[in-house]
Nucleic acid binder design. Sequence first.
DNA 1: CGTTCGTTTGAAAATATTCAAGAATCGTGG
DNA 2: CCACGATTCTTGAATATTTTCAAACGAACG
Lengths: 242, 242
Amino acid sequence: MTITVAQAAMRQTAKTATLALVASETPELARLTAHAQTLRLRRRQPIAIAPDTVWIVRSGIIAAEHGATGSERTMVEVHYPGDIIAAPPASLAAMMTYTSMAPSDVWRLTANAFNAAMAGDAEVASYVLQRLNLQRARTQLHISMLAALSSEQRVAALLLQAAGHLGTAHGGSVSFEMPLSRTEVAEYLALNADTLSRIMSRFVREGVLARSSRTQLTVRDIDALKAHCPMSDAVMALHSAR
Amino acid sequence: MTITVAQAAMRQTAKTATLALVASETPELARLTAHAQTLRLRRRQPIAIAPDTVWIVRSGIIAAEHGATGSERTMVEVHYPGDIIAAPPASLAAMMTYTSMAPSDVWRLTANAFNAAMAGDAEVASYVLQRLNLQRARTQLHISMLAALSSEQRVAALLLQAAGHLGTAHGGSVSFEMPLSRTEVAEYLALNADTLSRIMSRFVREGVLARSSRTQLTVRDIDALKAHCPMSDAVMALHSAR
DNA sequence: CGTTCGTTTGAAAATATTCAAGAATCGTGG
DNA sequence: CCACGATTCTTGAATATTTTCAAACGAACG
């Protein structure tokens, strides 16, 4: 089934506005839709990793995880709308899982179609490289976070990231629904879930953070949070919804 | 100064064999040389990061580091021959350093020339994406190492990586010259240099590793080393000189 | 040949994890 | 709508791991 943006527009009205908006903001991407198949993923739905395939996140959140299910699992990367995901090399693919962490729309292309689109259009090529470079920068920052920050600083960094991608500001404070469970956040931050819980509680006690439910968070004082995280400027620069 | 592979071959005989070999193995890369400038870097020489620039490592080792000089410094990535490096986004570039860890040859291109080469040639585009994907896989594995492995396991993983890229085998054991100092290895593994030293000494005591000098290492028992590192298979698959 | 820097090693201290128990939340079926 | 069971989350105390600090050693370099 091949679905173009125009066809998708005819099927859904609510979603159309967003799709069209994103497409008009990044016309380069729209040119990739010719042979793209749209996947609609529900929460926690895994994506089957096929070799020589490329996915483009249009909405929602896709997590890339590595390792055996259970104890030693790592959330290697978190993908947001606009991100381009290529199937990992075979030697890694067996240990990797891609899962939708929120209801998500994803375009699926064959690597051939994707390559052809790049080769045929200099603007697409330029756009794709720039996007991959942004994703690389985020991954590098992720490494820096794990390597250089204490657990408290890492949690602060994560909250800044989530606020940047998902938050809505109400004068000074930023609210968002955290799509990751405590365990998943812990896997992303290379932290024990117990330790993470302790740190979150401490932030609440300090008044930096408020919880209206398990997943509904409000950062009450962004500056105080930034003060907890040495590389907050880079984190916010690379993780803003635009 | 523009240097093609053929011209480089006329200048140096010792190096030529390698360059020509690599170029013949990856003809896609050779097509990128048209507007490439060759940089010859000495040990510990930094690369000036200019925006909209792309580097391709031809020989040697380039380290990408993040953070302030001194205490909280992280070696985010290590680049080997064939790797493609794009200038990081401005928000990260200020905190990043690229340094040659061994005498290295690097091609420098403008992002425009690089994009044009991809757009003009489907095989180049395909090759570049595949290479970037390999580098992404290595970076993801790096994250997994930091997140999921104990310090001893991380050191084992690093030794496997170095053996794969730089080692020469003599029946069972593998020797190589480690281009990174203890401090630098510690920065790569997110480890304290003291802790690293302790672990290396333990490996020597166990007979897994031998040191003929500070930088000259021999892995006496690859299998024993693999037994120390849970994801040794993936590490070796992604870090082999081919 | 002395100075400096990187490395090694031990003991003390900090940090994070494990284990265990209890509390809160979620989903399901009545 | 509520009750129940299962899951996820929180928290404290004990434990393990890693870092810090300090001192001594070794190699590299002028």
